[in-house]
Structure formats: C-alpha cells, structure tokens
C-alpha cells in the first residue's frame, strides 16, 4: 500500500496550504503555475523511479525543488526577454508529466497482468491436470 504515502502527503500539504495561506504577489502567479507543473513532474518521476527501482530520495527532493525554482526563474527570464519561455516550460513539463503517467500506468498494468497471468496459467494447468 505504498501509494497511500503520496496521497496522504498530498492531503497534508493541501491542508497546510489551506490553513497557512501564503500570499504570493499576483504578478508571480504565472511563475508559480510553472513551478507547480515542474514539481508535479518531479513527484510523478519519483513514483516512476520507485517502480523502476532507481528511486533516490535525495535526487527526488533536490530535483523537485530545483526544477520548480528553475522553471519559475526561466519563465521570469522569458518574460524579461519577451520570449515565451513560459510556454516552453508548460510544453516540456506537460509532455514529461504525461510520459511519467504513462510509464507508471505501464508498470502498474504489467504488475497486474503478471499476477493475473500467473494465476491464469496455474488455473489452466489445474484444468489440464484434471
């Protein structure tokens, strides 16, 4: 039941964020949205790594923070240069999020199918033996 951990953490985080309302200047809202996107990508990447047995907590945490901050900074820089790097960040992180989700889905499906196939094979054998 390891998937309870992220859900639980997410709920706690949302709760904290609701109780302690952090007032961000409205001009920063755009950069925050990119940061959220980057953070979401990192978190999903972390979950994917758990499935792939390459999980490293430190890598996840540093990646999470630095990705979020860098994405926001990049978007800010883009605004300063009047280049829509914001769009690039949304695009890239959007793709990565979908990729991560797809990978996670594959892993879950594989595990499920493996179990199911084992059961099905055993069942087949049982029938044949009879």
């Amino acid at each position: 039941m390891f998937w309870l951990i992220p859900v639980f953490g997410l709920l706690i985080g949302v709760l904290i964020g609701s109780i302690v309302t952090i007032e961000i200047p409205l001009t920063m809202a755009k950069y925050l949205s990119v940061a959220v996107l980057a953070a979401l990508d990192s978190a999903l990447g972390g979950i994917r790594c758990i499935y792939e047995d390459t999980f490293n907590g430190l890598v996840l945490l540093t990646g999470f923070i630095s990705n979020a901050v860098l994405a926001a900074l990049l978007a800010f820089l883009g605004d300063q240069l009047s280049v829509d790097l914001y769009m690039a960040a949304v695009f890239v992180f959007g793709i990565r999020i979908f990729q991560n989700l797809a990978t996670i889905r594959h892993h879950i499906l594989n595990r499920f199918l493996k179990k199911h196939n084992v059961h099905a094979a055993q069942h087949k054998e049982d029938i044949q033996q009879q």
């Binding site: 951990i5 953490g9 997410l10 985080g13 709760l15 959220v36 907590g57």
Partner: peptide, 21 residues
C-alpha cells in the same frame, strides 16, 4: 518514505497556494 512524503507535502502546499493565488 520520508522523502516521498516530504515531496508530496511540498507539492500539496504548492498546489493549494497556486489555487488560492
């Protein structure tokens, strides 16, 4: 677990802040 929990707590805070903003 701890790393994962911390990451997701941060994510939750970020998301709720973003919604609020």
């Amino acid at each position: 677990h701890i790393y994962l929990v911390v990451t997701f707590v941060l994510l939750g805070i970020l998301i709720s802040t973003q919604i609020h903003t």
